[in-house]
Simulated assay, not measured.
Amino acid sequence: MLVIRPITATDYPALMRCAEESGHGFTSLPVNEGMLRNRIAHSEASFAKEITEIGTEGYLMVAEDTETGEVAGTTGIEAAIGLDTPFYTYHLSTVVHASRRLDVHNVVKLLTFGNNYTGNSELCTLFLRPEWRKGLNGRLLSKARFLMMAEHSHRFSPTVIAEMRGVSDDEGHSPFWEWLKEHFFSIDFTHADYLTGIGAKGFIADLMPKLPIYVNLLSEEAQAVIGKVHDNTAPALRLLEQEGFTCRGYVNIFDAGPMVECEVRNIESVRHSLRCRVEIGEHSSSHDYLISNTSFENFRATVGKVAVDGERNIAIVSPAMAQALQLQQGDMVRLIGQ
Rank of each mutant, 00 (worst) to 15 (best):
I316W: 02
A320P: 06
S273V: 07
A256F: 08
V160S: 02
H152K: 05
E67A: 15
P13C: 11
S22D: 05
R39Y: 01
G138E: 00
E261F: 10
F254S: 04
A322H: 05
L240S: 10
N116V: 13
A301E: 01
A80F: 14
F87R: 08
E78D: 13
S318N: 08
E33W: 08
A200H: 10
G25T: 10
L29T: 12
S93M: 00
M259T: 12
Q338H: 10
H183M: 01
R155H: 04
F26T: 14
V278D: 01
Q223V: 09
V167K: 05
L92F: 09
G244V: 06
I204N: 00
R145E: 09
A98N: 04
F254D: 07
L111Y: 13
N137L: 05
D231P: 07
G73Y: 02
A322F: 05
R129K: 15
D231E: 02
L211T: 15
G34T: 14
T196S: 13
S142K: 02
L335P: 12
H191C: 05
I40P: 00
F203A: 07
V278F: 00
R248P: 03
F176K: 06
Y194W: 11
N252D: 15
A98I: 09
L237I: 04
K134A: 04
L147E: 01
S22T: 10
E21T: 12
A19T: 13
F127D: 08
A236E: 03
P319H: 01
V317W: 02
L207A: 06
P86Q: 12
T159C: 07
L2K: 07
V278E: 01
H272I: 10
L240P: 03
N116D: 15
M164Q: 12
T112L: 12
T159N: 15
D170Q: 13
V270S: 04
R248H: 14
M164I: 13
N137H: 15
H272G: 06
A14L: 03
M16T: 11
V96S: 05
F254E: 10
N313H: 03
P175M: 04
T190P: 02
V108Y: 11
L111Q: 02
H230E: 06
N252M: 05
M148I: 12
A205V: 08
E220W: 01
S295H: 13
T68A: 03
L126P: 00
F296A: 06
F26D: 03
N313V: 11
E131A: 14
M149R: 05
L29F: 14
E268A: 14
E221Q: 12
V229E: 11
S186Y: 09
S292Y: 00
T94V: 15
A324W: 02
L29K: 11
L195I: 03
T74L: 07
P319Y: 12
N266P: 03
L327M: 04
T294Y: 00
R238I: 01
K181A: 09
A79C: 07
I51C: 08
N116P: 11
R100L: 12
E151K: 09
Y289F: 15
I51K: 06
F176M: 07
A307R: 14
H42Q: 09
E50M: 12
A256G: 07
S93T: 13
Y88A: 09
N38A: 15
D11S: 07
T56Q: 10
F26I: 12
S168M: 05
S295W: 08
R275S: 02
S285G: 00
H272K: 15
N120W: 14
A79S: 15
T159I: 14
G227Y: 06
N216K: 10
V167P: 04
L83I: 11
